[in-house]
Structure formats: C-alpha cells, structure tokens
C-alpha cells in the first residue's frame, strides 16, 4: 500500500506540474501581449499616439480621468454612474414586464395566441434600430435611452421565460393535479421553479444586451456617460481615453453579469446544470 501511496503522490505532483505549465503559458502570453503593445507604441513609436496609445499611457489616463474633467466635461465616475443608472433602470423595467409576460404567454394559451403575433412582429427588429425613433419621441435625455434599453432587455426576458415555462414536465403537473393543486398553485409551485434557470438565462442575456444598447444610444445621443465619453474622445483624437472607456465598459459588463450569476446561484437551487 505504501507503494501505491507513493504513486498517488507522484501522480498528483505530475498533475499540478501540468496545470502550472499551462498557467505559465497563459501568464507569458498575457505578458507578451502587453509587451508587444508597449513595444510598438511607447518604445518604438510605430503607431502614433493618437491611434494607439501605449498601455502605460492608458493606465495613466485612467487614473487621471478620476479627477480631470477635460476633454469631455465630466470625470470618469460621473460617466460610470450616469451609464449605470440608465441601463439598470431600463433593465429593471424590461425584466419586470418581460418575465411576467413571457410566463403568462406560456401559461395561458389565449394570452399566447393574442400576444405571439405582436411579439413576433417586433422581435426581428434589432434593438439598436429603435434608437432613432426613441430619440425623436423622447429627446436625447434619459427617456430615450431608458426606452431603448427597455426594449433590449424586454425581448430576451420574454423569450426565455416563455421557453422555460414550456419546459415544465407534464408528469409533474399530473402529480400536482392528483394532489389537488389549483392551476395557480401549479404555476407557482411547479412551472415557475422549472423555468427559473431559463428565466435567469434570459436575465443574463438582457443585461448584456441592455449594456450594449446603452453604449450605442450614448454614442448617438448623450452629453454624459461612457458611450458619450468614448465617442467624443474619438473626435478629439484621444485614443487613450477611448481605451480607458472601452475597458471600463467591459469591466462593468463583466461585473454586472458576475453579480447576476451570484444571485442566480442563491435563488436557483436543486437544479443541476
């Protein structure tokens, strides 16, 4: 048995070494990426500063942007908060209406028959195509953007909630029926729990697409916000600020979906994925 134990240790050591090897490759890869970036910009100046700033410059601009209002008129935290406020507001409205409508559509055949054609009518129109009409209706303030984001969050919520409820197993419903559950109870105790993972998928997609719609809307019509910041920086030739903005947009998008992921884990229990 001692020999076996030895072998086990040996094997685990090998596996750890293997893992470390790939981790090293990843680290080297990232380092090379940044080094090459720095090399062609900051050191050799192959690319001019106004098209591709060096990573050091980007970092520097990022820090400075926390307290400098120039050139776009606001400091970074204000842009972030503006964007977050609008997108979360639109996302909230979209999911609060989208999820129940999706559930209702799947649960009541009548409801489905009535809403399905209307929904199928607006579904193929990409959300960004709503931006112009919304600007015209609501102006370039919060209203237009919230409306666009509402549309972009609404659609995935409806689609996925609908699909989730439709997945409810007939057997579970029969079981509930023999126990004398009312239709209402069946919806809340069986269909909705079944649909939860799918509903969360919808929420995650909604969050992603509302964040994207926000950037698009802010580039077209805004005077604050991250999308506005990167778009203005372009006309000023401040590539460093564009990259700061892009990375911030990416980071916040990632954080939002991570937070939603945690919420999902807390709420969806007993469902293997």
């Amino acid at each position: 048995m001692d020999e076996k134990q030895q072998k086990l240790l040996e094997h685990e050591k090998q596996q750890r070494a293997q893992k470390r090897k790939y981790l090293m490759i990843s680290v080297v890869s990232v380092c090379v990426f940044f080094f090459v970036w720095e090399l062609i910009t900051g050191i050799l100046h192959i690319l001019p500063d106004y098209t591709m700033p060096s990573p050091v410059k980007v970092l520097d601009s990022f820090i400075k942007k926390f307290y400098t209002k120039t050139p776009d008129g606001e400091i970074l935290p204000v842009h972030i908060i503006t964007s977050l406020k609008v997108s979360l507001f639109g996302f909230f409205l979209g999911s609060v209406t989208g999820v129940p409508i999706g559930i209702m559509m799947a649960w009541h055949p009548r409801f489905e028959k009535f809403f399905r054609p209307l929904f199928d009518l607006i579904r193929p129109v990409p959300t960004v195509a709503w931006i112009p009409i919304m600007i015209l209706w609501f102006g370039i303030g919060l209203g237009a953007k919230a409306a666009v984001i509402f549309v972009s969050a609404f659609i995935p919520c409806v689609v996925n909630s609908f699909a989730g409820i439709k997945q409810t197993s007939q057997v579970h419903l029969w079981v509930a029926q023999t126990f004398g559950a009312s239709r209402r109870e069946m919806l809340f105790r069986i269909a909705i729990p079944t649909a939860l993972p799918s509903i969360f998928t919808g929420l995650r997609l909604s969050l992603g697409s509302s964040w994207m719609a926000l950037v698009a809307a802010e580039m077209l019509a805004a005077n604050k916000g991250l999308g506005y910041m990167i778009y203005t920086s372009r006309s000023l030739g401040r590539a460093d600020l564009i990259i700061v903005g892009m990375l911030t947009i990416g980071a916040i998008g990632a954080i939002l979906s991570y937070v939603l992921g945690i919420a999902e884990k807390r709420i969806v229990k007993g469902v293997s994925r």
């Binding site: 076996k4 134990q5 086990l8 094997h11």
Partner: peptide, 11 residues
C-alpha cells in the same frame, strides 16, 4: 491497474 485522482487510489 489503479486509477489515481481526487486524492485517492482506486484499484
């Protein structure tokens, strides 16, 4: 044959 993994050996 013994499998090694998950911190144990399975013969």
């Amino acid at each position: 044959k013994t499998f090694y993994g998950d911190g144990k050996c399975t013969e």
